[in-house]
Write a protein that binds this DNA or RNA. Sequence first.
DNA 1: CTGAAAGCGCTTACAG
DNA 2: CTGAAAGCGCTTACAG
Lengths: 338, 338
Amino acid sequence: MTYDDIARRAGVSTATVSRVLSGSGIVSEERRRRVLDAVDALSYRSNRAAKTLRRRRSDTIGLIVSDLEYPFVSSFARAVENEAAAQGFAVLVCNTDEDLERERFYYGLMIEEQVAGVIIAPATEDIRMVQPLVDARVPIVTFDRRFPDDPFDSVLLDNASATGMLLEDLLRHGHRQFAAVIGTTTATPSRERLEAMRAVLDGVPDATLTVIENDLHGTVGVDHALETIGPAVLDRAERMPQRPTAFVCANAIIVMSVLSALGRNGFSVPGDAAVVGYDDVPGFDLFATPVTVVNQPTAWMGATAVARLVERLDRPDAPATATLAPPFMRHRASCGPR
Amino acid sequence: MTYDDIARRAGVSTATVSRVLSGSGIVSEERRRRVLDAVDALSYRSNRAAKTLRRRRSDTIGLIVSDLEYPFVSSFARAVENEAAAQGFAVLVCNTDEDLERERFYYGLMIEEQVAGVIIAPATEDIRMVQPLVDARVPIVTFDRRFPDDPFDSVLLDNASATGMLLEDLLRHGHRQFAAVIGTTTATPSRERLEAMRAVLDGVPDATLTVIENDLHGTVGVDHALETIGPAVLDRAERMPQRPTAFVCANAIIVMSVLSALGRNGFSVPGDAAVVGYDDVPGFDLFATPVTVVNQPTAWMGATAVARLVERLDRPDAPATATLAPPFMRHRASCGPR
DNA sequence: CTGAAAGCGCTTACAG
DNA sequence: CTGAAAGCGCTTACAG
């Protein structure tokens, strides 16, 4: 079944078939009917590859994420897929595990697929990584991460507010020795949150802040992170002159890993130390110590990222937009009282 | 940059370029070199749409899931993407929310995309749903679900063993009144697990089993399920002649929803009732009552599904394989003692 | 408003 | 082992 078949049956040219089916160009009502009837009668299915080849652009968008297994990511991905489908796009998902080589590979793939655009959470803030996409004029929307000076549309958490909310809660409960437990330092959230923490704590005379990094580049999956981060964090904490009384964790997996290590070592939460984090997860309210977190509106962020991309298709040269998503607190028990 | 450019620069025909780059056909070592050099020099990128159009088959596979936000699903999806990439395929994800209309729509999309194959968890066991895919000769691998008589390659949990493990634990702890809390009844896991429960409990004289369904067709997301299932379950349980002492939940979200409702209504677990389920989730060991579950080897299942699909491409007419994944228990506190 | 025809970038018989 | 050429199924100037 091709346009030829439809054209023959409807007694029109393939150009007319194309005009009707693509909704472009003007066609007389009568011919339109005949075409549509033929399409039905033949139960025609379009050939997307042919369309893509001819239009030099597919109706697919690429979603390149660090790890689909992280709750924040899968929830975001779900929203992206949903909104993309509503807008007539299919979505290609790619998982990089924060591995720059894989990221580079996927950028190449996006070009070969001639995707309409990409939604990415780049593992580094070095913009040279995405130069191939820029050269190929592939529209880019970043989420969770951004590049210096916001050259592309971006959708990310208002990290400063989120951090402020967390620290306010912790400070109110009397905490002064903080440990920031983060993953990949080259990415935006770690940087912004650290900056925000420093800014807030600069105004608190007796406050201390220690940064505990966990380089997870190329690491495989949630389970590994769960097992290794907590022990590494405790190990670091032991060696510190002043033991931290509050662990601020960059994501839900880190929260769990730290809670678990603390528990195994006989520490109680929040008695011996508070543990709070970014990203809520189903079940945090059912923990032995329910976990206090700031959450991101992931579904809204996913839908917004697609919306920005679609707007971009219409107006390639409009100035880039930077959308900050509002965080919201989940006050639970893990932040104190001390 | 097209084959024409490469051919011109290398002083060969486009046919030769194709033979070199696709790895098919025999080409003299010298010409091969020249082609490869030209490819490098021009930093050529292939056009996948052109390949697809010509070969009538893309290097993409479709992954159609019920809800990417469910931990089992996102973990499976991650493994699929990973293995697919290793085998040279990109993956198109589609989220159906168990909505048959969306499922049908995506099947059509798969045909239009001329995907190399699909990995699906069909929402119903009615095989007529996938007839379009069959007619279009799109290879199918089902996961989590299957069709009667296993007409396609399938990868799913050994539901009978898994159920047996759960019941054995519960029976050992003295439970006799069981409630099975399930979602969509038309899908495989519910059916198989119920059958297995009945088979086991038939041999236990004083055992009773009540089935509590929660039709989530077309329901939006994890949050909604979390809020509504637990209360509905308690409501049902109240009206039963004999209150169940053990809730066997079909997935991790149902477990959480039931635990949460129980807690809000002043029931203790496992004191007043045991709550166990299928699928482990990071954090279940940190719950106020750590949750006993049978888990599925999701990463292995995802990789296996892709492997089956790739094998199928080579041998379209080989008999269908039915792969049962081995469940493994996570013995924790929520199953008893009573 | 409509159609004939070129062309998007590949692959693959076919002939040599 | 190699190349000329047809063709995959669409879209889009172009001419009318």
